[in-house]
């Protein structure tokens, strides 16, 4: 087997998949903006993505904040920098952990569900049925999910940030002996609006990615149950990888000197 041919094939496959994804996203957004709009479906997806993801994102955030405080304390105490813990916790949560962990958790929960639902609709001809009933599946199924992902993940991340900071506060005050007022003051001392804003922008990008990958993989699923299962796996894996890549890109855009 010629290794160059294998590399060429892989590159062509990746390029075709990327092109297909970009065309899918552009078509869905383009048609969705023109309308007709489905506000009830957007609302339903917002509840699904935002409200029902709160427990899992909240749990992830609180334990991340707690462990961050604990790890920072054990590390920073080696050079007597324990006072920086509050700053470390809040900056880590708002800039990185809040959006990335929420994005990954939502990818696992919502992205998988979207791919499974739309994939099942594909293999049971429900998407074809939509078309025969004068309804564009991209407008009806995909666009509301993209909008809901884009809008709800920043809100989820705001909540996750608050819960994560609370987790750090709880460990710092009750286990590490920090003064509550001093910890709170330290938390806000070096926090800048851009730290929060960059995290929210990341969250919006991640929300779009999760919804896009869930819809794209589900929409193009083939075969029966096995095809839907494979699409669900692909949706979670590709969304997770794209979140990590996009995280670096957005960080670079905001903070590169």
């Amino acid at each position: 087997m010629n290794p160059l041919a294998a590399i060429g094939r892989a590159v062509l496959t990746a390029a075709a998949a990327t092109g297909s994804l970009v065309v899918f996203a552009a078509t869905a957004v383009g048609r969705g903006l023109i309308g007709p709009w489905y506000p009830r479906l957007v609302l339903r997806q917002m509840v699904e993505i935002g409200y029902f993801s709160l427990p899992v994102v909240g749990l992830t955030a609180i334990f991340s904040g707690m462990v961050l405080a604990l790890q920072s304390y054990t590390g920073f105490s080696r050079f007597e920098a324990e006072s920086a813990i509050a700053t470390i916790v809040v900056l880590s949560m708002t800039r990185e952990l809040g959006p990335v962990l929420a994005g990954l958790m939502v990818a696992g929960r919502v992205g998988a569900a979207m791919a499974a639902e739309i994939g099942t609709m594909r293999v049971t001809e429900q998407i074809d049925a939509l078309t025969t009933l004068s309804t564009d599946p991209l407008r009806y199924l995909v666009f509301p999910r993209l909008i809901a992902g884009l809008l709800m993940l920043p809100l989820l991340v705001l909540v996750a940030n608050a819960i994560g900071v609370l987790g750090g506060f709880v460990v710092s005050v009750w286990k590490l002996g920090f003064q509550p007022i001093e910890y709170i003051n330290r938390t806000f001392e070096f926090l800048e609006p851009l730290d929060v804003i960059s995290g929210l922008v990341k969250a919006a990008v991640f929300g779009f990615i999760v919804a896009l990958m869930g819809c794209f993989q589900g929409y193009h699923s083939k075969g029966g149950a096995q095809g839907v299962g494979a699409a669900t796996t692909r949706a979670v894996v590709t969304a997770s990888i794209l979140i990590l890549v996009a995280n670096y890109v957005v960080t670079e855009l905001f903070f590169a000197r």
């Binding site: 099942t120 074809d128 939509l130 078309t131 025969t132 004068s134």
Partner: peptide
């Protein structure tokens, strides 16, 4: 789309919308 609107279709499995 106009031609399609004049056609009704019964799918093999029904293809009813679960939701």
């Amino acid at each position: 789309a106009e031609a399609r609107a004049r056609i009704g279709m019964l799918f093999q499995g029904g293809a009813l919308f679960d939701s």
